[in-house]
Design a protein around this nucleic acid. Structure first.
Length: 258
DNA sequence: ATGGCTGAGCTACTCAGA
């Protein structure tokens, strides 16, 4: 089963790229972030024509997450955390997989820049609530998959120039500690588990020729609860979509479980 | 190089992203 996470930076601006990508990679489940649209304008029919059902948590202009799936999912939840700013950043669902139930948690973590502003506080508060609720879920359920745009550079190796980001909302130790805290609840960063020293990225800025210079960062992640690691067949960052015309600034990360 | 680009909402320009 192929589960893919992709921050598409507007589902409507990217629809042709996304459809081509689906035809190329044939995902079972696609976790989308930054759809930047309200539910009523989400291209549900376009995905239906490709054989997918859509579960959408949109909002006007900004943010928004969705799950596209070949098979129906259960217990769709848009209230995983209480967001004081009412931003659409998290959607969860339950997937039946080989007599297990896996909780899918699709997230778009706040950016948090500039640091030491209310935006940074929002990111910290959001992460704190998120970790608390994951902690509660870990006690009840053991099969959890968290994927999406974390807006966190986990370690120095995960960005082209760490010096430039060590006091940024994506690279500050205080934020990276939150990521470790999450992992310490009983998860693995699947990409890093399978690629101990590899330096690959999931995001490149649109400006300054970042893509051409490979000035990127790894901020999109798959965290899998420890008991599911035995089911991992492969994990891959697919750089192709970032090289296309009119690309998202993020590229998909692809997990296959068996 | 704290933004050189891109998208949404909207029609002139701001806000947001990382």
């Amino acid at each position: 089963m192929k589960i893919i996470s992709w921050n598409v930076n507007s589902v409507r601006a990217r629809i042709e790229n996304i459809k081509n990508y689906i035809n190329d990679t044939d995902p079972d489940i696609l976790l989308l972030q930054e759809i930047k649209t309200q539910n009523e304008n989400f291209p549900t029919d376009e995905f239906k024509n490709l054989g997918y059902v859509s579960y959408v948590f949109g909002q006007k202009s900004y943010n928004g997450v969705a799950i596209i799936s070949k098979n129906e999912l259960n217990n769709i939840n848009l209230d995983f955390i209480k967001d004081d700013l009412k931003q659409s950043r998290i959607i969860t669902a339950e997937l039946k997989f080989k007599k297990k139930i896996i909780v899918l948690v699709n997230i778009y973590v706040p950016n948090g820049n500039p640091v030491d502003t209310e935006k940074y506080e929002y990111k910290k508060t959001w992460l704190k609530k998120f970790i608390n609720n994951i902690k509660k879920n870990v006690q009840k359920k053991t099969n959890i998959l968290i994927a999406g745009d974390f807006n966190i550079i986990p370690e120095e190796i995960d960005v082209h120039d760490f010096k430039r980001y060590e006091n940024d909302a994506l690279g500050r130790l205080e934020i990276r500690k939150k990521y470790r805290e999450l992992i310490n609840l009983g998860f693995k960063d699947v990409y890093r588990l399978k690629n101990k020293t590899k330096q690959e990225y999931t995001f490149w800025d649109y400006f300054a020729g970042s893509w051409q210079k490979n000035n990127g960062m790894r901020i999109d992640h798959f965290l899998l609860s420890n008991n599911l690691i035995e089911n991992v067949k492969s994990i891959k960052i697919n750089k192709k979509p970032r090289s296309k015309e009119k690309p998202s600034d993020h590229t998909p990360i692809e997990l296959e479980i068996i």
